[in-house]
């Protein structure tokens, strides 16, 4: 499987992520879909790193994963707090920004 195949997989993952973010009702689902998009980007880094024979391409996803962990932690904290004040984690039920 050449780089083309990996990029196609990455693109599919990203699209699924976008789709998930835009369609999932659950806030947790949205968070997971965001992870999917993140990982498609990491996959791209790794793929290009290997193709160009550079070590940076493999190291960068490690940083990416670390950042993702932090982001997930913050995301969960927000969702917990949301649950505490609104008794729900459904994203479409929270519309206090409605104009």
């Amino acid at each position: 499987m050449g780089i083309k195949g990996i990029l196609i997989i990455s693109a599919i993952m990203f699209s699924l992520g976008v789709f998930g973010v835009l369609t999932r009702k659950s806030a947790l689902g949205i968070l997971i879909a965001i992870e999917l998009m993140f990982n498609s980007a990491n996959l791209n880094f790794a793929a290009f790193g290997r193709m160009l024979g550079k070590i940076e391409g493999s190291i960068f996803p490690l940083f990416g994963i670390a950042i993702t962990v932090c982001e997930v932690a913050v995301g969960f904290a927000i969702i917990f707090y949301l649950y505490r004040i609104r008794k729900t984690t459904k994203a479409d039920e929270v519309d206090i920004l409605k104009g």
Binding site: V18, L22, I30, D92, V94, D95, L97, K98, G99
Partner: peptide, 17 residues
């Protein structure tokens, strides 16, 4: 224009996308 201000995060994300 206020119709598009639904308050739902995902709608805003759609606009962003």
């Amino acid at each position: 224009l206020r119709v598009i201000q639904t308050g739902i995060v995902q709608d805003y994300l759609v606009y962003i996308a």
